[in-house]
């Protein structure tokens, strides 16, 4: 990969919260993190169509999983905690400053 004076190869992140630990299950949460200054992932009133319906869709598009969800069931299997199972993915891409 080459870089220009105003760009560099950076780590793009994608937090996907899936229904189950399977990469084929549907996504319940979608949070992209772009490596540009002042970027913030936001809650929005109008939820845009997500480009991926599953973690596998993101893999097909070149994302790489850097953290898989923990799969140990809680000792008390009657309690609920966070929504979905968190996969963290990355893409190393040339990104423009801004």
């Amino acid at each position: 990969m080459s870089s220009t004076p105003n760009s560099s190869v950076r780590q793009r992140l994608l937090y996907l919260h899936a229904r189950t630990p399977s990469v084929f299950s549907e996504i319940l949460g979608y949070t992209p993190v772009e490596p540009v200054r002042d970027y913030r992932a936001e809650i929005t009133a109008d939820v845009p169509d997500w480009p991926y319906q599953t973690v596998h869709d993101a893999l097909v598009d070149g994302w790489q999983i850097v953290q898989f969800p923990h799969q140990q069931a809680p000792i008390d299997d009657r309690d609920l905690d966070v929504v979905g199972y968190e996969f963290i993915l990355q893409k190393l891409e040339e990104v423009q400053d801004g």
């Binding site: 937090y15 919260h17 949070t31 809650i43 929005t44 009133a45 939820v47 609920l80 966070v82 929504v83």
Partner: peptide, 28 residues
């Protein structure tokens, strides 16, 4: 800037810090 809620999450034992990696959630 409306309030946005996630239906059905009221029974989850999830401290606020554990929500920090979420933005939009299906069904909000």
């Amino acid at each position: 800037g409306p309030t946005v809620i996630v239906p059905g999450t009221q029974f989850r034992n999830a401290p606020t810090d554990r929500m920090a990696t979420y933005s939009n959630i299906h069904g909000q």
